[in-house]
């Protein structure tokens, strides 16, 4: 639902970095998106193209690196892979899980001119 405002935030970061790191055009953007970040990757691509039109990132390629979700199981004291927040531990069935990876929404790097 909020991919549009996320893309606006990405554009703000690009515009600030353009000033600080002295570039005038962005040709590619790499985002790290966690499996449980709530971001719909297809919607993100759609919104990105709309938001960057007539900006320094017009036509930039969007590369999305999807980060799988992982949690720490308090009962079996190990890192486990999960798909959803309400998943049980695949080893012991406990719901005492602490998510340790999968919430990411990061701009990793840019290709610029």
């Amino acid at each position: 639902m909020h991919e549009m405002s996320l893309c606006e935030s990405v554009l703000q970061v690009l515009e600030n970095e353009a000033k600080c790191q002295h570039f005038s055009q962005v040709t590619a953007v790499w985002l790290e998106i966690g499996a449980m970040s709530g971001v719909e990757v297809d919607a993100m691509r759609f919104c990105f193209d709309v938001i960057v039109r007539n900006t320094l990132a017009d036509g930039a390629k969007l590369e999305i690196i999807e980060i799988p979700a992982q949690a720490w199981c308090l009962d079996c004291a190990q890192t486990v892979s999960i798909q959803q927040r309400y998943d049980a531990c695949p080893h012991c069935g406990s719901y005492q899980l602490q998510v340790i990876q999968g919430d990411e929404m990061r701009i990793k790097e840019l290709e610029v001119k």
Binding site: S9, V13, F23, R106
Partner: peptide
């Protein structure tokens, strides 16, 4: 204001949260 072809592509590390602001 830049003439095409004068600047070449380079990579910039960002590592910023999208919701950082």
């Amino acid at each position: 204001s830049h003439a095409a072809g004068l600047s070449s592509a380079r990579m910039v590390q960002i590592e910023q949260d999208i919701l950082g602001k």
